[in-house]
């Protein structure tokens, strides 16, 4: 028991708030979110606009202006993120924490070959020659099960398929072997057959390297199958936190509502269920 306390948790967040102030109003996008992450797979689910993506970006210090992030406590591997300068946070990004985004079509630079984009990730955090970075990038492409890395290295993003693009993204963000990976709807833009492939690769790499994973998705069954623990967000607040295996027995009406929204082939309903939202939950 004492051995586990020797190592601080990977990520500890207490009372995280993200607000957008404008002249007209203040939008409170994330309200008092707290969680602790070990080297595990944590799912964050919720509807669009529930603040799940912003939570990921707040951890990476990538909340777009004029967003303001505040928290009582934000530590990463024992380091206080709140006390760090923007530059120090930048040095942490890519090297120790990284993110895969939704649509590879937009998240890769269209005028740079994919190989060079991966090689660049290697060179950003360690002093290696262009040649070495290229070797590493080819290996990285191989590790995400790309058959002909040499050929793919020289392709431009518009020349690869969505599934391959997302595997390239994964290869790129895992370049520096980060301890924490945030996957922000990594499979939502892909078709179903490719989704499973990409998830399998992600799962392997996370397990292999003992990373912590925050998996952001609106797809409850997927998160239930893929993660260890699930946080359910509604309007920037945690509704409940539960073990993924217990998702089907969720108590909270919002979680139940989300689960019911999935149409079932074996159930014949004349009307699709409507998700119930209650302002009282935000107390």
């Amino acid at each position: 028991m004492s051995s586990s306390t020797a190592r601080p948790p990977l990520l500890e967040i207490a009372n995280l708030n993200v607000q957008f102030h404008s002249r007209v109003e203040t939008v409170h996008a994330v309200r008092g979110l707290s969680f602790t992450l070990g080297r595990e797979r944590l799912g964050i689910v919720g509807e669009s606009g529930s603040g799940k993506s912003l939570t990921g970006r707040a951890i990476l210090d990538l909340v777009p202006l004029p967003g303001r992030v505040s928290a009582d406590r934000m530590t990463f591997m024992g380091q206080d993120l709140l006390a760090m300068s923007a530059k120090q946070r930048g040095a942490l990004r890519g090297a120790h924490m990284s993110m895969v985004m939704q649509d590879p079509k937009f998240s890769l630079n269209p005028v740079m070959t994919v190989g060079r984009q991966i090689a660049e990730a290697y060179r950003a955090h360690s002093k290696m020659s262009g040649r070495q970075a290229e070797e590493h990038a080819l290996h990285a492409l191989e590790s995400v099960r790309i058959r002909d890395p040499r050929r793919v290295y020289n392709l431009y993003p518009h020349e690869v398929s969505g599934g391959m693009g997302q595997r390239i993204m994964i290869a790129m963000v895992l370049a520096a072997e980060p301890e924490l990976l945030i996957a922000d709807e990594p499979t939502s833009a892909l078709d179903v057959t490719v989704q499973m492939q990409v998830l399998a690769i992600l799962d392997d790499l996370v397990k292999e390297r003992g990373m912590g994973l925050i998996f952001i998705s609106h797809d409850l069954p997927l998160v239930g199958a893929f993660c260890d623990r699930v946080i359910v967000l509604y309007s920037g607040q945690v509704m409940e936190t539960l073990e993924a295996s217990e998702l089907a027995q969720a108590k909270h009406p919002y979680t139940q509502g989300l689960l019911n929204c999935m149409p079932d082939l074996n159930r014949r309903d004349d009307a699709l269920p409507v998700l119930k939202r209650d302002k009282a939950w935000l107390a």
Binding site: L62, G90, G94, S98, F106, S107, N109, E120, M172
Partner: peptide, 15 residues
């Protein structure tokens, strides 16, 4: 404002 710029930031590249 394009997403590839966010990607570049995620990679930890210099501004």
């Amino acid at each position: 404002q394009q997403q590839y710029v966010t990607t570049a930031r995620v990679k930890g590249l210099s501004e």
